[in-house]
Amino acid sequence: MAGEALTATGYIQHHLQNMTYGKLPAGYTRADGSVLSESTWTMAHSSQEAADMGFWALHVDTLGWSIGLGLIFCFLFARAAKKASVDKPTGFQSFVELVTEFIDKLVKETFPHRNTMVAPMALTIFVWVFLMNLMDLVPVDWLPMAAAKVSGNDHLFFKVVPTTDPNATLGMALAVFALMIFFSIREKGALGFLKELTLHPFHTGKLFFDILLIPVNFLLEAVSLIAKPISLGLRLFGNLYAGEMIFILIAIVFGVGVLGFIGAGLLHMGWAIFHVLVIVLQAFVFMVLSTVYMAMAHHRDDEHEHDQ
């Protein structure tokens, strides 16, 4: 980071920009001043370009790292599962079984319904999100600098922690939400699901009043329903983003003389140790809440207090 005449603001902004691949319209003035003659699919060279790409753009680094880490998870666990032996478990198999048993127990406690998908989902979330969070412990400049060296582009945007990208966390939350709706409808039927949305929490038992209360109930239930994926995604994003931000700020201090270097080193170590807790905890919270939401989707009781 100290190699070039970078301002602190520029440094931070550079670290917070994803590598974006998207379409720029014709006549667009690019960051280097050139004007596009026709609409082009390209990598964004500045934050402004990335923003101007709109919705139809992909964060290559976020997707790359999350898919890569997910594949690592799948590969390691599938291999351990395939090679798993009853009599002579290897060290790694024991570790995998430890995690699996922990999740299995937890899911059995929080999810009392019959659905074989929920426990594997919880396992996937826990390990995958943990791995993505773990990237936060790699010093903030290492991988971006390595990527810049490899690509030969010093200004390459490269974010290595997928969970500091709201797209990633909200994307996962959205998938959880879709599963929630799917299981709600499968378990209760479309009508049952609608009833749950419109006849709760206020219910008088008199048809006339119930019809009058439908809009109020629907508003309340819709908000509480939609709040679930949003809070789920934003909680993970917020925690990891804040952690990443502090690592970036500490990294700036590294450049300020010998004292700054030592101080930043100590700070970095302290924050990293604390952050170990955060990354596990956030992965755990994301998993538990997803499981709880699944349990809510399967819940068939018509009592009021259950829909808190």
Binding site: M53, W56, H59, F77, A119, M121, N167, G171
Partner: peptide
């Protein structure tokens, strides 16, 4: 920026969950 990554991540998520459900668990 919120963009297509959102959908991509959702699909990735569902794929990994499916994989874990079928081949790991």
């Amino acid at each position: 920026n919120i963009n297509l990554t959102l959908i991509g991540q959702s699909i990735t998520f569902l794929f990994f969950v499916w994989f874990c459900w079928k081949f790991v668990w």
